[in-house]
Design a protein around this nucleic acid. Sequence first.
DNA 1: CTCTTTTTAATAATGATTATCAATATTAAT
DNA 2: ATTAATATTGATAATCATTATTAAAAAGAG
Lengths: 133, 133
Amino acid sequence: MKLSNTLQRRIILEELRKLECHPTADELYEIVRKRIPQISLATVYRNLELLSEGGQVLKLQQTGKQKRFDGRVESHYHVRCASCGRVADIWDDEVIAVNRQLDVLVEKLGMEGYMLELNDRCEKCREKDEKPE
Amino acid sequence: MKLSNTLQRRIILEELRKLECHPTADELYEIVRKRIPQISLATVYRNLELLSEGGQVLKLQQTGKQKRFDGRVESHYHVRCASCGRVADIWDDEVIAVNRQLDVLVEKLGMEGYMLELNDRCEKCREKDEKPE
DNA sequence: CTCTTTTTAATAATGATTATCAATATTAAT
DNA sequence: ATTAATATTGATAATCATTATTAAAAAGAG
Ligand SMILES: [Mn+2]
Ligand SMILES: [Mn+2]
Ligand SMILES: [Zn+2]
Ligand SMILES: [Zn+2]
């Protein structure tokens, strides 16, 4: 089924690409709503799914966590906050190196792929640790 | 809060430990039901959660729809079937080596941990590939 | 045994995601 | 440009996994 060119789809991808962060569907919905106020959350979900099938969007999913989406599809790596679930890019040579090794290993074992995610606590959650009140 | 010794909790852990597979809460519920027919699914969920907090059970939150649980808590690694979501143990020296490296890296970066998921297709799904009808 | 605490079964509630569907928009064909 | 075929939308219902609630039962302490 060929994707047609709709305003909704275009804006969803456009707004996602503007973001440094990795929003959930509902976070992106709130942003897109500013430009298309009557858009439905289901439309955002539907399009993120289609775009990720088409390889224009990365879907970061883990059981028990809300899905998050990434407009950058070039190969790069992620850290997830262990307490709030937010995801950030990580640029660290050793992380890159381990991923390279995994590429090779997965290839050699004839597997489909892998998913490596580092866990940490994000800035915001660290601040809360300081002053818990 | 100290855990008391209930029949339900004991049997849940006992049955989980008997399994080679990594069941979802409802799969384990069906098994435990044979011994305690009136047990509730919520009890299974509650106890798996408590047992995993207590370190007697591993909770596997990988990609997929449902959490899976593991009665073996010694350090070991998993492959997940990309199509049905089933999880199996993997015993491969190189996989172990990469995990060791990740332990070190995570330690060095001062992070909380990591989640590495290897993806493949399980036997059952491979068979289906053969005769799709 | 008696009091206090914890757990249970049953079931309702929740939250994220997906499905349904009639109305509308996009694309392809004339 | 008109029309026919196809895809998409917004609204909302449904689903599914999981968690919360609660009165009754069981377990632990003394
Ligand atoms: Mn990213
Ligand atoms: Mn295992
Ligand atoms: Zn955080
Ligand atoms: Zn499978």
